[in-house]
Nucleic acid binder design. Structure first.
Length: 376
RNA sequence: GGGGAGAUACCAAAGUGGCCAACUGGGGCAGACUGUAACUCUGCUGGCGUACGCCUUCGUAGGUUCGAAUCCUGCUCUCCCCA
C-alpha cells in the first residue's frame, strides 16, 4: 500500500492524493461509507460502486465477530467474498465500541471485556485478538485497538487513556509482525492518535505514533461529544506532525462542514454513520443545506429529491414521495435517503478534490460552508 | 316490541366525588443523531401566557354537592342479545 500526493495548495493544508491498495486505488480526500455489520445499511454493493461512487467501505470488528462470527467470514474466504464488495475494506477495531458500549464493558491492561449487546455473553478483546480478527476478516486497512476517549474526559483520564492506547498500539504492531495476511492481499495497520481535547496530549501522541512506520495514520477520539472548535483545534495540532507522504484518517467525522474544515486542515480520509443513519431518520444533506424530509412542508413538493444530486434516486423520486415513504416507515424510504446522502458525501469529497487540484479549494470551501449550514 | 351496554380530546382507550386540562397507545407537529446496541431516541399535542396562572372542556339539558368526567333526572344518539 502506498500513497501518492498529487497536489498541495499554497493557502491551505488540503491535499489531493491517491492511496493504492491491492483492491484498487482510492482518490483522496475520500469519504468511506460505514458498513458495520458487513453491509452499508440499505445499499446494494452495485449501487455503492456504480451509483454512489464509493471507493472503500468500512466493516466493524466487534459486530462481525459477534455476528456472523469470525469462522463464517473465514469460511467465506474473507469479508470481500462474503459481502461481494471487491474494493478496499477498512475495519474499525472495536475501539469505538469501547466508547459507545461503555456501560457493558470493562477495561483492563489486558484489553476490554465486553458483554454482547445481542445476548449478554461475555467476550474479551485484546490488541492481539483484535488484530487476529481483522486479519481473518481480510481488511485492507486494520485499525489499532484503542480506547476512544469520551469528548468530555478530564485531563487525567485522557492522559491515562492515551497511555493505555499507546501500550495497546505497541502490542498491535507486534501482533501484526507475528502474523500473516490471510487471503493473499496486503493488510496495513493504521495507528490512532488519542489524547482527548488536550493539545499537549495530542502532540505527544502524534509524535509517538509517527515513530511507528505505517501506511497511514488516524486521528480518533474526536466528534465524541466535545465542542466542534476543540475538534478543529486538535486537528490543527496533530495533522502537521503526521508525515506528509502518508494518508491521514479522521475517524468518525462527520458533517459535510466538518469534512471540508478537516480537509482544509490536511485530512485525507473520513468515515461517518451520519449519511446513512440520519438518512434513515429523515435527514437529507444537499449542497444548499439539510432537509428534514419529515417536515410537513415537503408533503406536496413533487420536485426531485435533489435537483443537483448525482444519484439516480435523486431524479427517480420526488421529495413528496420520499417523505411519504419515510413517514410511513417504508424501508424504501431509508434506502433512498441513504443512497442520496452517500452520493452527496462522495460528490462532496470528489468536488473538494477537484477544487484542490485546480487551486481553488479555499474559496470554494468558504462558500460551501455557508451554504451547507443552512436548513431548508 | 322486550332486555342489556355505552357516549371522554384528531382516533382508540383509562378515569367512576376533590390529587383531572384529564393515564396510556396511535396519529399529528417539531427536534436530536458524527470510527452504528439506532428504520432509533426526545419534546409538544384544548385556548391564552416565557412562567406562577387564568379561561373553556368528558353526548345534551337540568339537578344534588363546598366541590362533578365521575351521583340523580329528562332528552338525543350508538352498539349487542331476544322476538
Amino acid at each position: 500500500m502506498n500513497f501518492t500526493l498529487k497536489h498541495q495548495a499554497f493557502n491551505t493544508a488540503a491535499r489531493a492524493g491517491v492511496l493504492h491498495t491491492e483492491h484498487g486505488d482510492i482518490e483522496t480526500p475520500i469519504f468511506m461509507p460505514v458498513g458495520t455489520a458487513g453491509s452499508v445499511k440499505g445499499i446494494h454493493v452495485r449501487d455503492l460502486k456504480d451509483d454512489i461512487g464509493a471507493q472503500i467501505i468500512l466493516g466493524n470488528t466487534y459486530h462481525l465477530y459477534l455476528r456472523p462470527g469470525t469462522d463464517i467470514i473465514e469460511q467465506a474466504g474473507g469479508l470481500h467474498k462474503f459481502n461481494g464488495w471487491s474494493g478496499p475494506i477498512l475495519t474499525d477495531s472495536g475501539g469505538y465500541q469501547v466508547f459507545s458500549l461503555g456501560d457493558i464493558r470493562k477495561l483492563t491492561e489486558e484489553g476490554a471485556r465486553f458483554q454482547s449487546h445481542i445476548d449478554g455473553s461475555r467476550h474479551l478483546f485484546t490488541p492481539e485478538s483484535v488484530i487476529d480478527i481483522q486479519r481473518k476478516i481480510g481488511a485492507d486497512i486494520i485499525m489499532a485497538f484503542d480506547e476512544c476517549t469520551p469528548g468530555d474526559a478530564e485531563y487525567d483520564y485522557a492522559k491515562k487513556s492515551l497511555a493505555l492506547t499507546q501500550r495497546w498500539l505497541d502490542r498491535c504492531v507486534e501482533q501484526m509482525e507475528k502474523t500473516q495476511p490471510r487471503y493473499g492481499h496486503q493488510q496495513s495497520l493504521f495507528p490512532i492518535v488519542q489524547g482527548g481535547v488536550y493539545p499537549d496530549l495530542r502532540e505527544a501522541a502524534a509524535k509517538n505514533i509517527i515513530a511507528i512506520p505505517s501506511d497511514g495514520y488516524a486521528i480518533g477520539g474526536l466528534s465524541v461529544g466535545e465542542p466542534e472548535a476543540d475538534m478543529y483545534a486538535m486537528i490543527d495540532v496533530v495533522a502537521p506532525i503526521l508525515p506528509q507522504d502518508k494518508p491521514r484518517y479522521l475517524m468518525g467525522v462527520g458533517t459535510p462542514v466538518n469534512i471540508l474544515e478537516a480537509i482544509d486542515r490536511g485530512i485525507d480520509m473520513f468515515d461517518c454513520v451520519m449519511p446513512t443513519r440520519n438518512g434513515r431518520n429523515g435527514m437529507l444533506f444537499t449542497q444548499n443545506g439539510t432537509i428534514n424530509i419529515k417536515n410537513k412542508r415537503w408533503a406536496d413538493d413533487f420536485s426531485p429529491v435533489d435537483q443537483d444530486g448525482t444519484s439516480f434516486v435523486d431524479h427517480q423520486y420526488s421529495k413528496a414521495f420520499l417523505r411519504h415513504l419515510i413517514v410511513s416507515n417504508e424501508m424504501l424510504g431509508s434506502q433512498i435517503a441513504s443512497q442520496h446522502n452517500l452520493s452527496f458525501y462522495l460528490w462532496l469529497v470528489k468536488e473538494a478534490r477537484t477544487q484542490i487540484l485546480t487551486g481553488n479549494f479555499k474559496n470554494w470551501k468558504e462558500e460551501m460552508v455557508i451554504k451547507l449550514a443552512q436548513r431548508l
